[in-house]
Write a protein that binds this DNA or RNA. Structure first.
Lengths: 229, 229
DNA sequence: TTCTGTGAAATAGTTCACAGCG
DNA sequence: CGCTGTGAACTATTTCACAGAA
């Protein structure tokens, strides 16, 4: 296969390219220039060209890239030419939100199972999927042939759940809780945390406010620091 | 104020340091070495030292950093010495999940308002907050003095909602929909998209599978590409 | 002696700018 | 002629490694 070593930065941009390309295709565009795709994805056009070149994807000089081919190739690079069934552990509000959100199924990640430790929930059907008990994890993984899971439990049990998932054969985990989980290197984990995102926003917002002379916001400001030499 | 220019990479790590430090403090640790904090945060210790130095935070040679002081300083750097009230637009499953998730309130982001366009929802109370109509946005922003908002609507209306938020005076937005929104530079926006995260996981998973000789997974593999010279 | 603070080296990622293909 | 593909310059970020403070 053609891909050498694809940088993390490149990988992170691929889903965005894909989304833009799907829009373009829906609007009937047959080809697209790196310039245009760059504009839609909010990156530099050289970056687009280099990312694609890295994947071994080639365009036509003087014309651009074939939209359909590009979609196919990026899908292939991301491993999306097949659907990846997923399971969701934790059917609280968040788990339900995920189950009812059609965007996963439509983008190639059908939710095949919902698991919880609460026996009272077992058997309830959410978005067409019956909730099963976490104790049956092994059987579920085998039955549905899933390799990816989303953890939507309370943070306190995330690590424990992650270990069970790993033991059951899950190899990629999206952790939606506030605590990071640690697993062997061969398991791929990504964490998404709302509070983290808001805190980052807060940093920039605070800075902006400070730059404006601190109008309005009554910051309990830190004691002045002696700057290091 | 002591902060020169803090890199985005550094800012993104601060919430993680903070979480680790709060754990340490809860366990009674009075001081922490960069080595230990690095280990907990899964980064290199030199990175920790440099990040802190960038913020003007200084430790004690031979000892480490004072945990409580560090928490205070990072909080200050992130602008978290005050609470940032937020509002959530879109009270579907996701909006409800956010409203019921205590992790935001406890980390300094109390949800002060829930807005929706569906008149049938207006007046319902979710997690102690009454749903209001999006048309009343201006009044709500003024009344609650909020500067940050989370968009949890269907993707199709995200852009429109974002513009209304901006017009109403919101300056930081967390976009939880699949489509990016574009706004003037002075508005800070972050997008979190589930499918994007899963696609990134998929890339690494596919690669791992391929490396193992493709056992099991029946990938519709792309036609072999001629590698560029 | 331990652990910070930081020059300097190394690595990663972006962008320019242009030769050259279609 | 327009646009790709890519050397080479540039910028950002990480990491090493060590002088020096407590």
């Amino acid at each position: 296969m053609a891909n050498e070593r694809v940088s993390g930065a490149t990988v992170a941009r691929l889903p965005n390219y894909l989304r833009c390309l799907i829009d373009l295709a829906a609007n009937g565009a047959a080809s697209v220039s790196s310039e245009r795709l760059a504009e839609l994805s909010d990156v530099n056009s050289a970056t687009v060209r280099r990312d694609l070149a890295t994947l071994g994807i080639t365009g036509t000089r003087g014309v651009g890239y074939d939209v359909k081919y590009l979609v196919f190739q990026i899908n292939a690079a991301l491993g999306l030419n097949q659907a990846w069934p997923i399971l969701v552990v934790g059917v609280g509000n968040l788990g339900r939100a995920l189950a009812n959100y059609g965007g996963l199924e439509s983008r190639g990640f059908p939710i095949r199972a919902l698991l919880d430790i609460d026996a009272a929930l077992v058997g309830d059907v959410v978005a067409g999927v019956a909730i099963e008990h976490l104790d049956d994890l092994d059987a579920v993984v085998e039955r549905e042939d899933v390799a990816m899971a989303v953890i939507a439990t309370p943070a306190a049990v995330a690590q424990e759940v992650a270990e069970k998932l790993t033991a059951a054969g899950i190899v990629s985990i999206l952790n939606f809780t506030a605590t990071p989980i640690s697993l062997p290197d061969e398991i791929e984990v990504r964490r998404v945390d709302l509070a983290t995102e808001l805190q980052i926003l807060s940093f920039y917002q605070q800075r902006r406010t400070a730059a404006r002379g601190g109008t309005g916001v009554p910051l309990t400001s830190a004691p002045a620091l002696s700057a290091p030499s």
